[in-house]
Design a protein around this nucleic acid. Structure first.
Lengths: 127, 127
DNA sequence: CTATCGATTAACCAAGTGGTTAATTGACAC
DNA sequence: GTGTCAATTAACCACTTGGTTAATCGATAG
């Protein structure tokens, strides 16, 4: 499986790890060496190395050799594509928000003291 | 590993598969049964079932039982969070675009017929 | 009651992932 | 040259993932 993965899949997969996302967040503040990047995490250097290879494979960082240091910097372009893909669904999550607002307003309008049987399910707008 | 994953990781992981993204795209057009969702793909029904469970686990779909059909519908809220996370990096990919435009303009301005040694690297704006 | 249909569960498999420790490479400082 | 530091590679491990086939479950049609 997972032969020659499409870029979007590789990007999302690279982002699907909290350590890697934290590394990207750090890198957004400016370039850093591998050692600096690994310092906040309680994992071994090789583990960091692997995370960086995944990020590099996804085109999310680039590494430059400086003597015995590798300095890493962010390359955010692949995030642009991921962002665009998600953008297409904006209408759907905004619709959900509309339904929630509508629900809360209705609930407030009818301010009876029903104890409420459970979590407030967002009502479907189904025609 | 991957014990009690944070939601963002679960969301990105669910999106990191082309079949699952295609399913979401289909669902964006309206609800569908499991059979309808699986029809375009050349994989077994259990495989689709697993993909749907991943999507459900990520809160990206919900399933409703209707007699012997399960009808699925999109719940796009988790995408909102993913979108927001990426949004924080917009400046970085726009910066890269700026650098590319700048590079192309410079290249065009100096319209010498240098054969060009390779792919046009985007020049760094390094302060 | 039996057959069938939509869908899921069970059991399995190959490959990938995130981590480890130990060994290796390359550049610098004595 | 020797030692050391930054980082990577190698080899391994447990667990997950995406897929399979076979078996199961629930609802409907005959």
């Amino acid at each position: 499986m997972a032969h020659t993965q499409d870029m979007l899949s590789i990007t999302f997969a690279a982002l699907a790890d909290p350590t890697r996302r934290a590394i990207l967040t750090r890198l957004a503040r400016g370039e850093a060496t591998v050692g600096e990047l690994g310092e906040p995490f309680d994992i071994s250097a090789p583990a960091i190395s692997k995370h960086l290879r995944v990020l590099e494979g996804a085109g999310l960082i680039e590494r430059e050799v400086d003597a015995r240091w590798r300095i890493c910097r962010l390359r955010a372009e692949p995030m642009h594509d991921a962002h665009d893909w998600l953008e297409a669904y904006r209408r759907h999550w905004e619709d959900s928000l509309d339904r929630l607002v509508e629900f809360v307003e209705q609930t407030h309008r009818a301010e009876a003291k029903k104890p409420g049987s459970g979590a407030p399910r967002v009502p479907r707008k189904k025609p």
